[in-house]
């Protein structure tokens, strides 16, 4: 039986984005219903052509940053969407504050979603926050 996983990404640090992306990709590719809500410091990494690297939080992040065999978090989120139909939802409030439109984001993100809608959809499922 499939479960619903709702992941909230607010941190912009490498470790938290990586762990959220690992959850999203593995759960989605295993047939679970996954949605990921991106807000606060997590959203700017998904603006098209934003090449800024997520800063590391601690030693483990530094270790991951040095190791080319660690799949980048953006690749894992993309695979979650492509292989497992995960929904990657940008927070509409964050888009408003950043003064950008949904079209300025990577194509796998959308539609812009408000918190009320996200909470309604998340009802009864598991909520994970990073």
């Amino acid at each position: 039986m499939s479960q619903d996983f709702h992941i909230v990404c607010i941190s912009g640090t490498r470790e938290k984005l990586q762990m959220a992306a690992m959850f999203a990709s593995v759960a989605a590719a295993t047939g679970e219903q996954v949605s990921v809500f991106f807000s606060m410091n997590a959203l700017p990494y998904f603006v098209k052509d934003n090449a800024v690297e997520a800063p590391v939080e601690g030693e483990f992040g530094a270790l991951m940053a040095q190791e080319p065999g660690v799949p980048p978090f953006k690749q894992l989120f993309k695979q979650a969407a492509e292989l497992g139909d995960a929904k990657l939802l940008p927070c509409s409030m964050a888009l408003d504050l950043l003064k950008i439109s949904e079209e300025a984001l990577d194509p796998e993100l959308g539609p812009a979603t408000g918190l009320t809608r996200f909470l309604n959809d998340a009802e009864g499922g598991q909520l994970l926050t990073f």
């Binding site: 990709s25 590719a29 190791e67 065999g69 660690v70 799949p71 894992l76 695979q79």
Partner: peptide, 17 residues
């Protein structure tokens, strides 16, 4: 080889599709 979790699994799933 030389990629870390969940890289190999995701590779497998990509090809399985």
């Amino acid at each position: 080889r030389d990629t870390f979790c969940p890289g190999p699994l995701m590779e497998l799933i990509t090809y399985m599709k």
